[in-house]
Simulated assay, not measured.
Amino acid sequence: MNADDIDQLIHRELPAATAGDAAAFGRIVSASQNTVTAVALAITRDVASSEDIAQEAFLSAWHNLPRLKNHASFLPWLRQITRNLAHDHLRGLRNRPVGGEAAELAIEHAADPSACPMQTALDAERDAMAADLISELPTESREVLLLFYREGQSSQQVARLLGLSDAAVRKRLSRARQSVRDDLLARFGEFARSSAPSAAFVLGVTAAMGASKPAAAAGLGGIAVRAIATNVAARFALGFAGAAAGGLLGGLVAAWFSRGIILGYADSVEEMDVIRRFAYRYMALTLATIIAILGVHLLWQSPQLTFVAIAIALLAMNWQLLVQLPRIMAPFLARDAHRDPFGARARLLAYRLTWGRTGVMMSNVVVIGSMVLVRLYLL
C-alpha cells in the first residue's frame, strides 16, 4: 500500500472509527503499523518493547480519537504519541533498580524448563544484535532507514509517512550509507524487514480495543448494551471466550503466514516434511482449541469452564512451541549458525519473533491481557 492509499484509507475510516467502529480503526492500524513500530524501534532499539509501545500508542489514539479535530493530523499525532511513550519507556528503564532486573531474569529462567545456557546466549545475542545494528546508525536516520526497508525502499513513501520532504529523507539515507559499512547496512536491511510486525499485531491491538470504545462513543450505546446483557455469568463467559478465541486466531493467522521462516531451514524433502507436519499439526490443534472454547461457551456459558478450556488451550500451544518445536529445530539452527554466522543471526531473530519464545510470550500476553481487559470492562 503506497502513501496515497494510506492517506485515503485513514481519511475514509477515521469518521467511523471516531464513532466507535473498531473494525474501521483496525484497518487504520494495519495500514500504519510499519510506521508506528519503526518510530518506536528507532528509539528503544528493542523489537519486543517497540511492538508493546506501538500497541499502547494505537490504544491511546483509539481512546482519544474524539479529541482529534483535524483528521489530516492523525499520522503526525500518532507518531508523537509513539515517541512520547518510547522515551517514557527508556526513562523507566534508567530508573529501574538493577536488583529488580536481576530478580526478574532469575524468575524467568527458573520458570522456563526449556531454557539452557546455549538458548540464553542466543537470546542475548539476538537482543544485542538488534540494539547494535540500530546504534550504528546516526540518530536522525534510524526511523527513516527502518521504514525505508519496510516500505519497499521508496524514499517518497517514507517521506509521506514521516511527514518529511523527499530531499530530507534522501539526505538522511545518504548520511547513513556514508557512516555505516556496506555489509552492516545489508544486515540492517534484512533485520528491518524481518522485524516488521505480522498480521498478529493488528489482531492483538483490535482484541485489546474490544474492551472499550472512544470516549464519545461510550455513552448511551454502552449503557444500552449493558442493560441488555443482564446475565452476568453469560457476559463473563462470552468475554473470556471471545478474547481468548480472538488471540488464538491471531496466532493461527501469524503461524500460517510465517511458516516459511521455519521451512527455510530444511535442506531436504525429509526435513521439510518433518517441519511441515509440525506446523500443520500446530495450526490444526490451535483451530480445534478455538472451536472448543466457543463450544464450551455456547453449551454452558460458564466463566469457570470457559477459563479451564482457555487454560488447556494455552498449555497445548505453549507445549508445542516451547518444547516440541525447539527439539525439532535445534539441529537445523545449529547447522545454519555454523554455515553462515552473520546471516543466521537475522534468520534466528525472525524465528524467535514468530515461532520462538518471544512470539509465544506475545501470544500469551494478547490472550491473557484481552481476557483481563474484558473482565474489567464487564465489571
Results as ranks from 00 to 15, higher is better:
Ser179Trp: 13
Gly189Glu: 07
Gly250Ser: 12
Gly210His: 12
Ala216Ile: 04
Ala218Glu: 15
Asp273Thr: 05
Ala255Met: 03
Tyr265Gln: 03
Arg177Asp: 15
Leu249Glu: 15
Tyr265Ala: 01
Val205Cys: 09
Leu252Ile: 05
Asp183Val: 12
Tyr280Cys: 00
Leu220Ala: 13
Glu190Ala: 10
Ala200Asn: 06
Asp183Phe: 14
Ala217Ile: 08
Gly251Tyr: 01
Ala243Ile: 12
Ala199Leu: 10
Ser179Val: 11
Ala186Ile: 09
Gly264Asp: 06
Arg177Leu: 14
Gly204Met: 08
Arg277Asn: 10
Ala199Trp: 05
Pro214Thr: 14
Thr206Glu: 06
Leu249Ile: 02
Leu220Gly: 06
Leu285Ser: 10
Gly246Tyr: 00
Leu184Thr: 15
Asp182Tyr: 08
Ala211Cys: 08
Arg226Glu: 13
Ala234Asn: 05
Leu285Met: 11
Val274Ala: 13
Asp267Asn: 14
Ala224Arg: 11
Gly204Ala: 08
Leu184Ala: 13
Met272Ala: 12
Gly222Asp: 11
Thr206Met: 09
Gly246Asp: 06
Leu263Ile: 01
Ile223Met: 12
Gly250Phe: 02
Phe236Met: 01
Glu270Val: 07
Ala186Pro: 01
Arg181Gly: 10
Arg281Ser: 09
Ala244Ser: 14
Val202Pro: 00
Arg277Val: 02
Ala199Cys: 09
Ser195Gln: 10
Pro214Asp: 02
Asp267Leu: 07
Arg193Tyr: 07
Ala192Met: 09
Ser179Tyr: 04
Leu285Trp: 03
Gly264Leu: 04
Phe236Trp: 04
Gly260Glu: 08
Ile275Pro: 02
Ala208Tyr: 08
Val253Tyr: 09
Leu263Thr: 03
Arg193Ile: 11
Ser179Cys: 06
Ser179Ile: 04
Met209Leu: 12
Ala254Cys: 03
Ala216Arg: 13
Ala234Gln: 13
Ala211Gln: 12
Met283Phe: 00
Ala199Thr: 12
Ile228Phe: 10
Arg181Thr: 11
Gly221Pro: 04
Met272His: 07
Gly250His: 10
Ala229Val: 05
Leu220Lys: 11
Asn231Arg: 15
Met272Val: 01
Leu185Tyr: 14
Ala234Cys: 09
Val202His: 02
Ser212Ile: 09
Ala243Pro: 07
Tyr280Glu: 01
Trp256Phe: 08
Leu263Phe: 02
Phe236Ile: 11
Leu185His: 08
Val180Leu: 05
Ala207Tyr: 00
Ser258Arg: 14
Ala192Trp: 06
Pro197Phe: 14
Ala237Tyr: 06
Gly251Ile: 01
Ile261Gln: 05
Ser268Val: 07
Ser195Trp: 04
Asn231Leu: 07
Val269Leu: 12
Ala284Phe: 04
Ala254Gly: 06
Val202Glu: 11
Leu203Val: 11
Val269Ile: 10
